[in-house]
Amino acid sequence: MLSTVKCMVMRDLTLAMRHRSDVLTTVFFFIIVVSLFPLGVGPDAALLKEMAAGVVWVAALLASMLSLTRLFADDYNDGTLEQLMMVPQPLSLIVLGKVLAHWIISGLPLVLMSPLLGLQFGLEGDELIMLMVTLLIGTPVLSLLGAIGAALTLGLRGGGVLVSLLVLPLYIPVLIFGAGAVTASAAGMGADGHLSLMGAILLLALVLAPWASAAALRISVE
């Protein structure tokens, strides 16, 4: 079981390493979106500090979604996806491996970049750590839920726009708890409640999303 997941993760990481520019595109998109906000609302330090968590989180949602369309599309186009559906392993494990690789490529870099962006918005100390922690728990959920949308829209015209329509509403709880935790800790309240709820969402997504994506893939590949 673990070896299946590991095999898929290694495969997708190898592929990503041979296409390194794709990884960088996602990170730079994230940085650009975050940097646009001060330009839009003005450089008022107090206002920016208050908005910081929300802005970074919304940008993370958009960045992670942007890279979703390619999650299954390449494998679908060259026929490896249908071959993967016929190996004697549960398809949900294969999906889990692919999602994990997607997170390492497009979610983890966002987590690592977030303290820098937080600094730009005047966050400090504990708030920066909290921002990183929430993104660390939250971005895997984004990849997991996003996989369902990517699988459903596989091979459709305008799939990229459609996937955002399907997936963004599902991202709302993660956004609320993620940004809420940072705000709460900045206000001196505990963020334990937020974090444990996010953990619960992560567990639920980990159990249900690969299964749902596998079902969606079977529908789409037909």
């Binding site: 296409h19 060259d78 026929g79 490896t80 071959q83 190996v87 004697p88």
Partner: peptide, 17 residues
């Protein structure tokens, strides 16, 4: 699936590998 091997119109190969 253990007993099955299907080869279709697509090669089912990753071109970068």
């Amino acid at each position: 699936n253990r007993e099955l091997l299907y080869l279709g119109h697509h090669y089912g190969l990753k071109f970068e590998l």
